[in-house]
Amino acid sequence: MSVNREKVRFASGDAECGAWHYPGTNGGCVIMAGGFAVTKEPGTDPFAHRFADAGFTVLAFDHRRLGDSGGRPRQVVRIKDELADWNAAIGFAATLPGVDPAKVALWGFSLSGGHVLHVAARDRRVAAAIAQTPNADCQAIVRNAARYQTPLAMLRLTGRGVIDALGGLVGRPPLLVPLNGERGTVAFLTTPDALETDKALNPGNRYPDWQQEAAARFALSLGFYRPGRDASRITCPLLVLVCDQDRSALVAPSVAVADSVARAELIRLPGGHYQPFLSGHEQAVAAELSFLRRHLLDQPPADS
């Protein structure tokens, strides 16, 4: 496993994003970030090391107000700011040594997989994109999540979201809620997949600094984020990887995204939301590396 990486920082909006830079050798660059309130180490390490070992430069970053990145108040997730962080990361990646600005790809999973769809649809600097078990339609995700939660716990989460949002207006510290939990507990996600979060992303508490909480106010806005609706605007090659038993991000919205993008490829794996981090890891890595090599490195045939 490659350990050749260095910490770097780049400006985004009113803060700086902290990132790992893995130097590459082939001119291609993969920009990566974790899912909802997932920092770069648990969210990207297993894949980033493999991409770097294959010769790609990797820039794995934390969104603002999370992990090594700056910004306050801490643990507040704002979609607009995170999308701006991706745009800033693309600009910064083009300045890294050995990177061909025409060979920059995006990689994200879950919420950041939705970000990848949104950014790839709008930023023509993106040469290729990988959306792994993406949150393509958060409205559908919210409806589905309700099936795995009790009405009382949902009401309590909404109440905390309202209290947190109002408190934020007057400068109070964020009211934090666990990212995942058992059915009946107040948490953002209580699907069967949620119970595998630590096994998949933080085995043996490998990343003790990862704060698995976020400001409750995010519960009020998640259902309005539907990045898959604009996927037909994506012109670069897109790899969509879905897991057929995904009970968190859902399969159907992601398959619809792949169907709507002219240059999309769809990979289906058995298993739940985190299967690419578990027993499906090798299959996922192989598919993603094949995609990156074909679309960032292969040269088109010369005109005859």
Score class of each variant (00 low, 15 high):
residue 72 R to K: 09
residue 90 I to C: 11
residue 9 R to I: 01
residue 66 L to P: 03
residue 58 V to E: 08
residue 4 N to I: 14
residue 105 A to E: 04
residue 57 T to I: 10
residue 66 L to I: 12
residue 83 L to I: 05
residue 41 E to Y: 05
residue 124 R to F: 10
residue 52 A to N: 09
residue 102 A to I: 02
residue 117 L to D: 10
residue 55 G to S: 13
residue 111 L to K: 06
residue 62 D to Q: 08
residue 121 A to P: 08
residue 71 G to I: 00
residue 101 P to A: 10
residue 122 R to V: 04
residue 32 M to E: 01
residue 40 K to A: 04
residue 90 I to V: 12
residue 84 A to C: 02
residue 128 A to G: 09
residue 130 I to E: 07
residue 115 H to A: 00
residue 69 S to W: 14
residue 39 T to Y: 14
residue 102 A to L: 02
residue 76 V to N: 00
residue 110 S to D: 08
residue 111 L to E: 01
residue 64 R to F: 13
residue 83 L to C: 01
residue 7 K to G: 15
residue 123 D to P: 15
residue 8 V to M: 04
residue 50 R to F: 14
residue 91 G to I: 03
residue 31 I to H: 14
residue 64 R to E: 10
residue 39 T to S: 14
residue 35 G to F: 14
residue 70 G to Y: 11
residue 33 A to S: 11
residue 123 D to W: 05
residue 61 F to Q: 06
residue 83 L to W: 02
residue 66 L to K: 08
residue 99 V to G: 02
residue 11 A to S: 12
residue 20 W to N: 06
residue 72 R to I: 10
residue 77 V to A: 11
residue 50 R to L: 15
residue 103 K to T: 00
residue 45 D to N: 05
residue 80 K to S: 15
residue 43 G to C: 01
residue 47 F to H: 02
residue 20 W to Q: 05
residue 67 G to T: 03
residue 22 Y to D: 13
residue 118 H to C: 03
residue 67 G to Q: 03
residue 122 R to F: 07
residue 51 F to Y: 05
residue 104 V to H: 04
residue 31 I to Y: 15
residue 68 D to S: 06
residue 7 K to R: 15
residue 32 M to Q: 04
residue 95 T to M: 05
residue 119 V to N: 00
residue 10 F to L: 03
residue 119 V to M: 05
residue 94 A to T: 02
residue 91 G to L: 05
residue 46 P to W: 02
residue 47 F to I: 07
residue 42 P to F: 06
residue 26 N to F: 06
residue 48 A to W: 00
residue 48 A to I: 06
residue 114 G to V: 05
residue 52 A to W: 03
residue 116 V to T: 09
residue 5 R to P: 00
residue 33 A to K: 00
residue 127 A to N: 05
residue 69 S to R: 06
residue 113 G to P: 08
residue 14 D to N: 06
residue 24 G to V: 04
residue 4 N to K: 13
residue 42 P to I: 02
residue 94 A to F: 08
residue 44 T to L: 08
residue 118 H to F: 08
residue 26 N to W: 08
residue 89 A to S: 15
residue 17 C to P: 01
residue 101 P to D: 08
residue 38 V to F: 02
residue 129 A to H: 04
residue 117 L to E: 15
residue 72 R to G: 13
residue 95 T to W: 10
residue 125 R to E: 09
residue 18 G to I: 04
residue 36 F to G: 07
residue 12 S to C: 05
residue 97 P to V: 09
residue 49 H to K: 12
residue 11 A to E: 12
residue 121 A to F: 07
